[in-house]
Amino acid sequence: MSDASPPPVQRRILARELRYLRERASLTGDDIKDRLGWSPSKISRIENARISVSEGDIELLLDLYDATPGRRERLLSLARQTQTPHSWRAYTDGTREFLTFMSVEAIAESIRQWEINVVPGVAQTEAYARHLITSWRAVDPTLTPRQIEERVSIRMKRQKRFFPPESSRIWMILDEAVLLRTVGSPAIMSEQMRKLVDFSELPNVTLQVVPLAQSRSIIGESFTLLNLDEGDPLEQCLVYIDGNVATQFLLDEQQSVYYEKTFEQLAGSALAPAVSREFVANLARS
């Protein structure tokens, strides 16, 4: 039965991934009908996120599509996340898209991020994160000290997957303004710069800085590109827009291509990773 409410973002992402795998396997709805006994309309409803799909049905499709073990694990994990994890209770007032972002971030093989406002959460110090989160009380006076500490804890735990044994890949490009904007105090900023330097030295982390003096035509908003299977050159990334007022996932293929190209252009205008690391290190010493 089709749900009356709009499909959750996770279901839309899962639908897109299943459609991609079917097309990559060169299978049609009639092929699925012959092999699984399903009607083509069922496949259409699944791939358009009009109905929920059971974990058992997902496993049948992944078998048929010859999905890699890693991709199978990630998609099944995404399918299981039908409710907000209890550990994220501090974010129950957040948008559905941001909660989904944390779900996808946790299973993505690689992440690319362009940031114009603040240091990305996965590279923040505890003091920097606490000041940012506490500052939200100016617009949300209902935010309690307990919720603040829970959100800080969640942010710190999100960082663990970029260290061994997981060592997920992340490529961050920061506008220089992010590094010059004081958050909290000079002491907090100095500690944050040192952490960025240490983080950038990990073999799975790439950090670049776009100097303010660098001429560029792309300004735009902060965004994150997430790839569930880095080894698949044909896979389209998932695009997450982190706006000042609203956040959203963009799942359209053309939009994915646009943001991929935008990220490439930003990387080309940024300082090289080694130069960027020294740039940040100089800020930490100043």
Rank of each mutant, 00 (worst) to 15 (best):
residue 5 S to D: 15
residue 7 P to N: 14
residue 7 P to Y: 12
residue 8 P to F: 11
residue 9 V to L: 11
residue 10 Q to S: 11
residue 11 R to T: 13
residue 11 R to V: 11
residue 11 R to P: 08
residue 19 R to E: 01
residue 20 Y to D: 05
residue 22 R to S: 04
residue 33 K to A: 15
residue 34 D to P: 01
residue 37 G to P: 04
residue 41 S to V: 14
residue 43 I to A: 09
residue 44 S to H: 14
residue 48 N to P: 02
residue 51 I to Y: 02
residue 52 S to R: 14
residue 55 E to Y: 03
residue 56 G to A: 14
residue 57 D to F: 00
residue 64 L to I: 08
residue 65 Y to H: 06
residue 66 D to V: 13
residue 67 A to S: 14
residue 70 G to M: 01
residue 71 R to W: 01
residue 72 R to G: 04
residue 76 L to T: 11
residue 78 L to P: 03
residue 78 L to H: 07
residue 79 A to P: 07
residue 79 A to L: 12
residue 90 A to Q: 00
residue 92 T to Q: 10
residue 96 R to N: 12
residue 98 F to D: 03
residue 101 F to V: 12
residue 105 E to S: 05
residue 107 I to W: 07
residue 108 A to N: 07
residue 111 I to G: 04
residue 113 Q to N: 15
residue 118 V to I: 09
residue 128 Y to H: 12
residue 129 A to L: 00
residue 133 I to Q: 03
residue 135 S to L: 10
residue 138 A to C: 00
residue 140 D to W: 08
residue 142 T to N: 02
residue 142 T to K: 01
residue 148 I to Q: 00
residue 149 E to C: 00
residue 150 E to V: 01
residue 153 S to T: 14
residue 155 R to C: 07
residue 163 F to A: 13
residue 164 P to V: 06
residue 165 P to V: 05
residue 167 S to N: 13
residue 172 M to H: 07
residue 175 D to S: 12
residue 176 E to G: 03
residue 180 L to V: 00
residue 186 P to H: 07
residue 188 I to Y: 04
residue 188 I to F: 04
residue 189 M to W: 05
residue 194 R to T: 01
residue 200 S to C: 04
residue 202 L to A: 15
residue 202 L to I: 05
residue 209 V to D: 09
residue 210 V to Q: 06
residue 210 V to Y: 00
residue 211 P to W: 08
residue 213 A to Y: 14
residue 217 S to G: 10
residue 217 S to D: 15
residue 228 L to P: 03
residue 229 D to A: 09
residue 229 D to M: 04
residue 231 G to R: 07
residue 232 D to Q: 12
residue 235 E to A: 14
residue 236 Q to A: 11
residue 238 L to R: 01
residue 239 V to Y: 13
residue 240 Y to T: 09
residue 240 Y to L: 10
residue 241 I to Y: 06
residue 246 A to V: 13
residue 248 Q to T: 14
residue 249 F to E: 11
residue 249 F to M: 11
residue 250 L to V: 12
residue 251 L to V: 11
residue 252 D to K: 15
residue 255 Q to K: 12
residue 261 K to T: 08
residue 262 T to Y: 03
residue 264 E to R: 05
residue 267 A to E: 02
residue 268 G to L: 00
residue 268 G to Q: 00
residue 270 A to E: 03
residue 276 S to H: 11
residue 277 R to V: 07
residue 279 F to E: 08
residue 280 V to E: 03
residue 281 A to N: 08
